[in-house]
Amino acid sequence: MAGITQTIPSGALLPVQGVEEYPQDRHQTWRKFSRHRLALSGAIVLLLLVFGATAAPWLSHFDPNAIDTQWSGTPLAPGAFGHWIGTDEIGRDLYTRLLFGARISLTLAVFAVVIEVVLGTLIGAVAGYYGGKIDGALMRLTDTFLSIPLLPLLLVITGIVAASSSKAALNFASIVLIIGLLSWMNVARLVRGSFLSLREKEFCEAARAIGSNDSRIVIRHLLPNAVAPIVVQATLDVGNVILLESALSYLGFGIQPPTASWGSMLANAQENITIAPWAAIYPGLCIFITVLAVNYMGDGLRDALDPNVQ
């Protein structure tokens, strides 16, 4: 095969390659997953985070964007005036911003991954199912996008969006779209690989023999058998997108102020690190713990969905 044959997803936690055609039952999958202690802890941490993000307005009586009336130019230290982990450099409650930031960071990652998975599956399925020239063309396109370093490309595109209208155009929706539309390549390769081997299998032959059309074969017969590696890749990519979004926001090309995202909360942390170290510590810690939880969960899913692992 031509092109970049060895590119690894940016997180470099590789999902299972190829697929097994005999499915295991759900109980078996759950048993294997729950035996993976760290994966289970990861899932619990994520559930707590989702709860915190959903219930944010009820978990804190502060407004995430309001400046404390007691603020007088210096960030309020943890414990002062009811801010139990302090305020940022302009007097906004850090704990509340972390909760509201979780909303942005988590939903943005999930939406971007949904786009990535839909697009990647579509491209990979068409390439793998039809093969030949279509496959060649689509894989060449995949190689092209894989060869362009992702972070600089994202920065240039968000930079152009900001310059074309205003910085405010860099909102939730545009960042979801930009990230989602530029990270489908690994899913596409995964699905293509599965489909290339699956379409030669007897059950596919049988489906064709009884007169099923292409879309029915793809949706009813091939896709369900190719779903496991996609799930693993998607899980790991949620973590990668959280990291990516936070990096973009940190550099000022992501979520714009005053909206809180974990990355944008760190944007001013460096110059204020001497007066408000807490404002630098907590948002990053949240990113780190969340991505760690996602990665452990992905690892557990990979083991649980792989019939070869006992």
């Binding site: 936070s246 760190l266 990053g284 990113i287 780190f288 990665n295």
Partner: peptide
């Protein structure tokens, strides 16, 4: 390795600066 994969680079750098420079 898991910690490394999950680490936001810029935050890790900030923490290093805080610990060793500030």
């Amino acid at each position: 390795a898991f910690f490394g994969f999950s680490m936001p680079v810029f935050w890790f750098a900030l923490m290093l600066q805080m610990l060793f420079s500030v």
